[in-house]
């Protein structure tokens, strides 16, 4: 093992203190060291968006950050989106109902990206949704189900807020 460094961070509400190889990117750290394999690596050069996670609430491609750079940060990955073991998050429900996923490999990045986006823009247009996920590649769905799911989720989240 090459040079290492100690880091402490929070992922999905859980605190971790880890010694990490400095050259390891954040995606590998989450997957290999923390066992959070829900974050997927699709290209490792910052194009496909599958590895997107939220760092302090802000989306980032985890293949383009070193794990050491997550020291002191609070992360959300796909495993932390659902409220509990039984229920799904409204965005996840909307993905299921609108067939917003097929093989599921790009899905974690789509979900994290849209969580940030719908937080900023609770009532988006179709065009805005398309641009919001333009940095996330999907080979299965043609995006139509994903766009429908995002628009549907916006309505569900709005209804929840009003309730």
């Amino acid at each position: 093992m090459g040079e290492t460094r100690k880091i402490a961070l929070t992922v999905n509400g859980k605190r971790y203190a880890e010694e990490v190889e400095v050259r390891m990117h954040l995606g590998d750290f989450l997957r290999q060291q923390l066992g959070l394999t829900g974050t997927h690596l699709g290209c490792e050069h910052g194009v496909c968006g599958a590895c997107t996670v939220l760092v302090d609430g802000v989306s980032a491609r985890s293949c383009l950050m070193l794990a050491v750079q997550a020291d002191g940060r609070e992360l959300l990955t796909v495993e932390g989106i659902a409220p509990n073991e039984e229920e799904l998050h409204p965005l996840q429900e909307a993905f299921r109902d609108n067939h917003g996923l097929q093989c599921g490999f790009c899905t974690p990045g789509m979900l994290t990206t849209l969580i940030e986006f719908l937080g900023d823009n609770p009532d988006p247009t179709e065009r805005e949704v398309r641009e919001a996920i333009s940095g996330n590649l999907c080979r299965c769905t043609g995006y139509q189900g994903i766009v429908a799911a995002a628009l549907d989720a916006a309505q569900r989240l709005k209804a929840l807020k009003q309730a």
Partner: peptide, 24 residues
């Protein structure tokens, strides 16, 4: 030098650059 990493990190992953030191 490592700033936002959106260019350097892909170049590191692809091993287009092979630095001995990274200054974050």
């Amino acid at each position: 030098l490592l700033a936002g990493g959106q260019s350097l990190m892909p170049m590191l992953n692809m091993r287009f650059v092979l630095p001995d030191h990274v200054i974050d």
